[in-house]
Design a protein around this nucleic acid. Structure first.
Lengths: 172, 172, 172, 172
DNA sequence: TTTT
DNA sequence: TTTT
């Protein structure tokens, strides 16, 4: 469809240390659970109330996976920009089930660490691909094909085909 | 949780005429299905490929429900700003199921019509509250409590007019 | 114009303690300077480079001004959601000058503190309107007319409690 | 600075046919003026009011420049995702002046056509670089280094260094 | 200078 | 399962 946009922006905390898995051809995939929550005061009782929402985030982007692997731990506060994607899968009874995830893949995805935790080294989001950008720990991690928007010194993406052929391996 | 953000931005087309339902106390709730899609050329085969993603959007906001009721039809192109929310429910076998929806509710939700279709009347998004803003059909529909951000003639929550007549007092 | 969107999202640090000023009729206006920056490695020299961008943020929203006044200090990390606005003014020689600012005003503006600093009390963003929501310090501060998007205990603009007790009625 | 975000999202109409200029080494730069506007009903007078905001958008991204060159005309409705950037320049009297622009450059920039105008051909956003994606007219144009987020068939960016050494050539 |  |  011409002219469509599918964007999710989250700021929240990671509920558990991320799981990193690998495809058959060696590409990493990171799974995160991120909590966002809202607090308000009930207009009748005056009590403070809170509601927490849990989001499943799946990182296909190689550079961002490295960042996740190296720096993201349980409790980390993250800024995430990705897309909504609903996967269809079958449960053990053969019934269709659907899981909706926030997917970080491709050029418009971002993951940024918002607290100091896990920093220190030389995180490389675009990393390992020769001319890639080397973002500092806790920086703004562009995706594998990405280059930061800035006046000079842009890197180009690496090659390689990508196949998300393991959808069914990642139940909700 | 302090400092969390949960935001979804979609631009897409409505797959069917919206359903409007009502709560026991008469509030409207609109359900929409919105499609976003991406087109790309396969880097191996060179074929053009497309992937469509369907999103369930639930509008709790009364003003936005009115807009949906009056103007949104199958095929309409919309800009949506809402939140991710996952509901737990039981299927007929008593098994837990989860559905993730884009919810439009509260102050940070928006629904804007991006094509001319369905316009014409005097849609009132803030409607029914006396001093509310009356957005024209196809305009930018704030929520029930919303006021457009602009320099003059702004309405405040409880009353009183606002005039940003001091623009010149705030040099760069 | 039908169907337009004007949105700025910033995460950055406050460069100096905010200035709060008041209009003749007593409304507060807060001015903030926020820095965002990007780091990358120059693809030729291999050097690490950084570019910092400074943004002027003007908060017209009363509730958010209170938050700024009470909690935001130099160095604070903020999430800001506002609109771009360009003001015309005259310099001392009578020449037209333009300044572009990120304006927080009206229903679609947000300011959220992303670090623990300056928190503690009972910041009230929706404040001063009786039934308003009372967000805790460091919470997600809706605007003056705002209510958090959540299933129950929502306040509506003019009155009446809201209960999304029909969750189960809206299967996927 | 670790963990910063600088993002502008606009939906608006193009005020005039875009200007495309070229750097000394042949790279295109497109300048657009985009209008967003808001309509509301004055809460005192009941009159309908409107305020239009004009934005200067500068496209450094080669792929997006091609799209602009081929498809974007006066009146077109666009979705833009870019960054805020303030340039310093000197006026004819040698005084410092500042212009703030929405810059489309690097991995997190997008330009999408929201109306049917100008469509038809085989717009190529990533185009002309071998393995690039070929988005259809009116599609979602990723940037030069970008690939659409989708399960398979991703393309990588081309090479080449980029230098925005012509800042001063683009006064407001 | 756009658009409705 | 996070965080305040």
């Amino acid at each position: 469809m011409a002219g469509s946009v599918n964007k999710v922006i989250l700021i929240g905390n990671v509920g558990a240390d991320p799981e990193i898995r690998r495809t058959q051809d060696g590409r990493p995939i990171a799974n995160l659970r991120i909590a966002t929550s809202e607090t308000w005061r009930d207009r009748n009782s005056g009590e403070r109330r809170e509601k927490t929402e849990w989001h499943t985030v799946v990182v296909f982007n190689e550079g961002l996976c490295k960042v996740v692997e190296q720096y993201v731990k349980k409790g980390a506060k993250l800024y995430i920009e990705g897309q909504l994607q609903t996967r269809k899968w079958q449960d053990q009874n053969g019934n269709d089930r659907y899981s909706t995830e926030v997917v970080l893949q491709g050029f418009n995805s971002t993951l940024t660490m918002l607290d100091g935790r896990g920093e220190g080294g030389g995180a490389s989001a675009g990393g390992g691909r020769g001319s890639s950008n080397d973002f500092g720990g806790g920086g703004n991690y562009g995706d594998d094909y990405g280059a930061p928007a800035q006046p000079s010194g842009r890197s180009s993406g690496g090659g390689g085909n990508f196949s998300r052929d393991l959808d069914d391996d990642i139940p909700f």
